[in-house]
C-alpha cells in the first residue's frame, strides 16, 4: 500500500503537549488508538473533520499538524 502524500507532525506535537500518549490523543479526538497509530505512520489520511479536531486539540493551525507533499513529488 502506497504511503500517503500527507505527512504529519503528530509525534512531535504529542511530545510538546506534555508527552501525550496515543491513547490520550485518541480519546480526545474520539477515534481508536489504532487510527492514531495509522495516521502517525502515514498509513491513513484522516478526514478533514478529524484533521481539524486534531489541530484544535494541539491548539495549532492545521498546516502545522499535516503537511501536503504531493506537489513537491510531481514538480
Amino acid at each position: 500500500m502506497a504511503k500517503s502524500s500527507i505527512q504529519n507532525n503528530i509525534r512531535k506535537l504529542r511530545f510538546h503537549a506534555g508527552e501525550m500518549t496515543q491513547q490520550e490523543l485518541a480519546d480526545l479526538a474520539r477515534v481508536s488508538r489504532q487510527t492514531i497509530v495509522a495516521i502517525e505512520k502515514g498509513n491513513y489520511s484522516p478526514s478533514l473533520e478529524l484533521a481539524f479536531r486534531m489541530a484544535s486539540i494541539f491548539k495549532t493551525p492545521l498546516e502545522e499538524v499535516f503537511i501536503y507533499k504531493g506537489d513537491a513529488d510531481s514538480s
Binding site: S32, Q34, T35, Y44, S47
Partner: peptide, 8 residues
C-alpha cells in the same frame, strides 16, 4: 468493544 471510527 473498541468504538468504530471513520477509519473502521
Amino acid at each position: 468493544v473498541p468504538l468504530e471510527d471513520e477509519r473502521d
